[in-house]
Every structure is written in C-alpha cells, then in structure tokens.
C-alpha cells in the first residue's frame, strides 16, 4: 500500500465515522451507544460475523465482475440484472438435476455463470456490433431481467410449492456447506476469494488481461496495435456477467436455497461502489467488500438496536463513492480513460 492510498483510507475511515455519528445524533442516539450496536452487529459474535461474511460474499462476486468491465473501459451498471438471470438459471438447474452434491453445486455455479454471462454478453454484443452505449443497454437489461424472471417464475416455470415469485426449494443435499454451523456464511466466500485471486492473475499476467487493460486505458493505441476492441467488449461483458451470475448462484444455493425474484436487495448496484472503493483491483476489492459487508450487517443491527434507519448506510456509501470520485484514481485505470 503506497502513501496515497493509505492517506485515502485514513480520510475515508474518518469520513465514514463522522457521517455515521451525524446520522446517529440526528436520530437522537448517542454515538457511543450507536457504534457499540454497530460493531456488535457486524462482529459481535458468531451469528453477527456470519452475517457480515454473507453480505461480503454477496457483494464480492458482482464487484469483481464490475471490475472486469470497468477495467476494459465499459460502464457495466447491469450487474443486478446479470445476478438475477444467473440466479434464475442456477435455481432452475438445481431443481432439475439428480447427481452427487459436489457435482450439483458445481453445476449450480456453472449455470449461474452462464446465465450471467449470456445476459452480460447481450450488452457486450450491442457494444461490439452496433457501438451501443453500454450504460443505457445494461440499465435497460436490468429492468428487462426483472420482468423476464417474474414472468418465468409465475408462468412457465411456476413451482407447485412456491409461496411467492419463486422456484422450488433445492434438495437439501445441494445447499452450500456452511463455514460456521447454522449461519448464512457458506463456502461461497472461499469460492469468491479464489475467483478474486484468479482474476488478479488473469488481469495482470495473461494476454487476455493485457488486451482488456489496453482497451480500457488507451483504446486508440490498443486498436492501432491490432487489438479488436469489439472482441474485448464482448468478452469483458460476458466475464463480467459471469461473475455477477455466480453471485446469484451463491445467493440461491447458500442463502435462500431457492430462486426468488427478490433475491437481491440491490447488491448489483452497491457492488459498483465496492468495486470503485476497491480501486478496481481484485484483492483490494475483497477488503472493500468486507468493509461494505460490515456496513450492511452493522447497519441492520444499528436499525434494530438504536432505531437509526438502515438507509443512512446507503447515504454513507454514496458519500464514500462521491469522495472517491474526487481522487483522480480512476483516470489511469480504465473506466475514467474513455
């Protein structure tokens, strides 16, 4: 960690603490009581730590995906839709196959990745073939994904045991093993961490990663060097969607144990903040995801224990992103260099 990022980290931490104190004071809660509730909610015991880790996992997958697209200079704001379609395919496959659990879990993750990749590739193809603005296409695809998922689970794929807009429950054997027993922390977390290490290797040390970064940082130079920008756009969006889709699969197999259209309370959007705060570097994103995971679970506890609305946390996340934008960090890292 260099001096500049250490300084930014210190300012960020201080800023978040100050903003949280203000939110607590505004809600007539003493910051001491409030922070106590917050930290207890995030790290206070086995259950609390597990909740933090579950939120971390849910944010980490889409954030890694977003980083791929942003590094390629593509503003993929469609992680939410990619996560949803990935989760849908994962939840459907999980109720359709009858194989040993290990293979089933692998199939569920693969289905999630394929679903998300296909959904992301639509925007990638539009960009590659028709030079369509990816901000608009990914946003539209989010809305379309929500409608498509709702249509499928209430129509052609309607489950007999569904109580809401959801598919059938997965067989118990296919539920992800937990890291801490009787909690929502599952082996999806180490899978996500593995994905982060793999992504770091791919981005830094492979020909694909090199082309991707070149297309993001200096598109004109990359084009003149013979790199096909449209091919990069297509594959970057597909891989970006694949990771978001794996996030959907992790939610299906690890937390809800079935697909539900209300699967994600906006993880795909908050993950944008996570990716940016993590500087679009896979390993730093893991740390950012942990911080945001703690904010999410601590924020819930804060709401329950001290009546500080959870939405205050989103304001703080927004402030963090806004402040980060002010550092000219992105300029050299893809997304800014368009």
């Amino acid at each position: 960690m260099n001096r500049e990022s250490a300084k930014a980290l210190a300012i960020g931490t201080f800023g978040v603490a100050a903003a949280m104190s203000l939110a607590m004071i505004a809600s007539h809660v003493s910051p001491i009581v409030g922070f106590n509730a917050f930290f207890y909610g995030a790290f206070g015991g086995k259950q609390e730590i597990a909740e933090t880790l579950a939120s971390t996992t849910a944010l980490l997958f889409p954030a890694l995906g977003i980083a791929i697209a942003f590094r390629a200079g593509l503003f993929n704001i469609g992680a939410e839709g990619q996560l949803l379609i990935g989760g849908l395919l994962a939840g459907w496959i999980g109720t359709r196959i009858d194989v040993p659990p290990a293979i089933a879990i692998a199939a569920i993750f693969l289905a999630g990745a394929i679903g998300g990749a296909l959904w992301g590739a639509i925007a990638g193809w539009l960009k590659a073939a028709r030079d369509a603005n990816e901000v608009i296409s990914t946003l539209m695809l989010n809305f379309i994904a929500a409608s498509l998922a709702l249509y499928l689970v209430t129509g052609p794929l309607r489950a007999p045991d569904a109580a809401g807009p959801e598919l059938s429950l997965l067989p118990h054997a296919y539920w992800l093993p937990t890291l801490l027993s009787h909690t929502r922390a599952t082996i999806a977390l180490p899978i996500a961490l593995l994905a982060a290490f793999a992504l770091r290797y791919v981005l830094d040390s492979t020909w694909f990663g090199y082309r991707l970064r070149a297309a993001g940082e200096a598109p004109e130079a990359a084009r003149r060097a013979g790199i096909s920008l449209s091919r990069v756009a297509l594959w970057a969006m597909a891989w970006s969607g694949a990771l978001a889709g794996m996030g959907g699969a992790a939610l299906v197999a690890g937390e809800l144990h079935r697909f539900n259209t209300q699967l994600s309370p906006g993880y795909g959007f908050i993950a944008i903040a996570v990716a940016l705060v993590g500087g679009l570097e896979p390993l730093t994103i893991c740390i950012a995801a942990l911080a945001f995971g703690a904010l999410e679970s601590g924020g819930l506890a804060l709401q329950a224990a001290a009546a500080v609305p959870k939405d205050a946390i989103h304001v703080i996340e927004g402030l963090l992103v806004f402040a980060l934008a002010a550092r000219r960090y992105l300029g050299a890292r893809g997304a800014g260099a368009r």
């Binding site: 959007f269 940016l276 989103h314 996340e317 402030l319 992103v321 806004f322 980060l324 934008a325 800014g336």
Partner: peptide, 11 residues
C-alpha cells in the same frame, strides 16, 4: 459517472 452514481445512492 462515478460521482453521479454516488449522488444517486445519497439521494
């Protein structure tokens, strides 16, 4: 774009 996303979250 980043600042805009931040503003949307804040609002």
């Amino acid at each position: 774009i980043v600042a805009g996303m931040g503003i949307n979250l804040i609002c």
